[in-house]
């Protein structure tokens, strides 16, 4: 450690002026225990600053000494301390000089004043406490709302989790056929995913890659059975576009989706066919 370099680095000056960074303060205090030169440099600056402070000395106002001594004694007895700036030399002393003549009246005034002060204090305290209880109540209801929101969130998460688990089960089930419905005509960019359970004949549909239908329209799934379209239900675009269960279809050669009016149609509008896919094997 190069002591001279450290001493001339400016850290000591910053330390004595009280503007050194915390880590510099710690380091310096440690080093000054180890190196007397550093301790001496600190002390020398300190004395210069203290001499400056000394030079600012001003005689305090007369009477302050007694006030402070009273305050010290009050503080030692844990009584409230009066600040010199609050000390007022007014009415009470005027009353005091009138003792004798109107002494009783003065005492009456004083007890009245004390009673009023007590009353005011009590009112203030009540207001403060009432405010506090209001605030606590408000906080409680906020917390309740927060809790309800979290419960709702929780339920939502749980249902999504259940749905995902169900979808995963379907995908992993060897009896479930997955059929991709590919885009038709102008809709080659779209496709849909269909799952068909070979035992229960349940049909599930996912429309992740389909455009949102215009207002008043809905996608309708058709099963082609012996060359004839049979409705397998309409798909509800609810924003999540998750797997939705459609009607049970015992048998089909092909599936197709058309855009129909809301609620579905009796027969498919063929020029509104978006996607279609054959059932393999």
């Amino acid at each position: 450690m190069d002591i001279q370099q450290y001493i001339s680095s400016g850290v000591i000056e910053a330390y004595v002026l009280g503007i050194a960074a915390d880590e510099d303060v710690r380091e310096l205090e440690q080093l000054s225990h180890q190196y007397p030169e550093i301790a001496a440099a600190v002390e020398e600056y300190r004395r210069s600053l203290e001499a400056y402070a000394d030079a600012l000395a001003i005689t305090p106002p007369a009477g302050l000494k007694d006030q402070i001594w009273s305050a010290i004694q009050a503080d030692e007895q844990q009584l409230p301390v009066v600040h010199p700036s609050q000390e007022h030399t007014g009415s009470t002393f005027d009353f005091a000089t009138n003792e004798g003549k109107g002494g009783r009246r003065v005492r009456l005034y004083r007890s009245l004043a004390a009673a009023v002060a007590l009353l005011l204090g009590s009112i203030t305290l009540n207001i403060v406490l009432w405010n506090q209880s209001q605030q606590t109540g408000k906080k409680m209801s906020e917390m309740k709302q927060e809790q309800q929101r979290m419960l709702a969130d929780n339920q939502d998460f749980r249902s999504r989790l259940e749905q995902s688990a169900h979808q995963l089960d379907l995908l992993l089930d060897p009896f479930v056929k997955s059929i991709v419905l590919a885009g038709v005509g102008a809709h080659t960019n779209n496709n849909a995913m269909l799952l068909w359970d070979g035992r229960s004949k349940d049909v599930y549909l996912s429309l992740k890659n389909m455009p949102l239908p215009p207002a008043g329209k809905q996608y309708q799934l058709w099963a082609i059975v012996n060359g004839k379209p049979v409705s397998a239900g309409v798909y509800t675009m609810d924003g999540k576009q998750a797997m939705q269960k459609m009607k049970t279809i015992p048998q089909a050669e092909m599936f197709a989706i058309t855009l129909e009016q809301e609620g579905g149609s009796e027969t498919p509008t063929l020029d509104e066919m978006y996607v279609a896919g054959k059932v393999q094997g």
Binding site: A53, D54, L56, A57, I58, T59, P60, P61, L64, Q67, I68, A71, V81, H83, P84, S85
Partner: peptide
């Protein structure tokens, strides 16, 4: 008191501070 006056620049505040 001189330091208090220098720092606070107000007699009332300096008196309170000295106490």
């Amino acid at each position: 008191y001189g330091v208090a006056m220098k720092m606070l620049n107000k007699e009332e505040a300096a008196k309170d501070l000295l106490q």
